[in-house]
């Protein structure tokens, strides 16, 4: 078959198939508005155990790597103690993991006492978004655990991590506070000036975000704490977003904006807490 004939025979057919599938997927996505459809949900449900197993294996390999590295050093230092040392180190590692988790729950307990209106659920991060253009991750809980689209995600200290943007039965996708599509109403400084935390691509790549649309007359300074305003009802008021690390002026010189160093180091997270319900006080 000649090239021209091949292209004219199969090209349009494939284009029609692609367009039909694209149309179906596009319409289904638009109709579902963040709720995972059957295909996505089935896919995630099927791969969820695999993903959890992968995370567990990767964690184990990481600890194994650390173990081998430290073990070699111990062998050089003292051969006779190596077995005992390795055993203790292994034990210590598992203890420190448990201790870290315990510490997170203890912090959370203190946080819970301060915010008795919060209905919290904990979840582990099972995978990170593979894209260079977003900052998001998948957690191990979904609608089966009572989570809802738009639920606020925090750390054990009550620092804002992000928001649920996609919901499956036993998984959810969380958009982090530094993502380009993130918008959160905020209050800043001792006089609680209103502003909006909006993601920006360049800042996202540096692990930061931006405080813009400040109320007229607002003055912000480096070191000012940025808290959620609670306006709109998506986020409870008073959650720590971060601290102003630099005050900048827009290109036109008319407006001021702040660069926020988030309170949470997004890349270091392993466990998060989801606020399923809270009392709205505006």
């Amino acid at each position: 078959m000649k090239l021209k004939h091949y292209l004219s025979k199969y090209g349009p057919r494939l284009a029609v198939v692609v367009l039909i599938v694209a149309l179906i997927v596009g319409l289904a996505t638009a109709a579902l508005e963040g709720r995972a459809g059957f295909l996505r949900n089935s896919g995630e449900t099927l791969t969820s155990p695999l993903q959890k197993a992968t995370t567990a294996v990767l964690d184990w390999l990481e600890s194994l790597y650390g173990y081998i590295y430290q073990y070699d050093r111990i062998v050089e230092e003292n051969n006779s103690l190596k077995a005992e040392n390795a055993r203790l180190r292994e034990q210590s590692r598992s203890f420190s993991e448990l201790e870290a988790e315990n510490a997170r729950y203890r912090e959370l307990l203190g946080f819970r006492e301060k915010h008795t209106d919060f209905d919290l659920a904990s979840a582990k991060i099972v995978s990170w978004d593979a894209s260079n253009y977003t900052s998001a991750f998948t957690i191990s809980k979904g609608s089966d655990e009572g989570l809802e689209l738009g639920d606020c995600v925090i750390t054990e200290y009550g620092a804002l991590v992000g928001q649920i943007i996609e919901l499956g039965t036993d998984w959810s996708t969380v958009r982090t506070v530094i993502d380009v599509d993130m918008d959160v109403g905020a209050l800043v400084g001792v006089y609680s000036y209103a502003g909006m935390v909006t993601g920006e691509f360049t800042l996202m790549k540096r692990g930061q975000t931006r405080l813009a649309y400040l109320s007229s007359g607002a003055q912000i300074f480096e070191g000012d704490e940025v808290l959620t305003s609670g306006k709109g009802g998506s986020f409870p008021a008073g959650l720590l977003i971060g601290v102003i690390s630099a005050v900048m002026t827009e290109a036109g010189g008319q407006a001021t904006y702040g660069i926020i160093e988030p309170a949470v180091d997004v890349g270091q997270l392993s466990q998060v807490f989801i606020i399923r319900d809270f009392t709205i006080s505006e």
């Binding site: 692609v18 599938v21 694209a22 638009a30 996505r40 896919g43 978004d129 998001a136």
Partner: peptide, 21 residues
């Protein structure tokens, strides 16, 4: 492409069309 579109949050049908092409 469909699998990638379902797995990533940033696109809906971009990869589906692109990878088929």
């Amino acid at each position: 492409g469909l699998s990638c579109d379902l797995a990533l949050n940033e696109s809906t049908v971009t990869f589906l069309i692109l990878f088929a092409a």
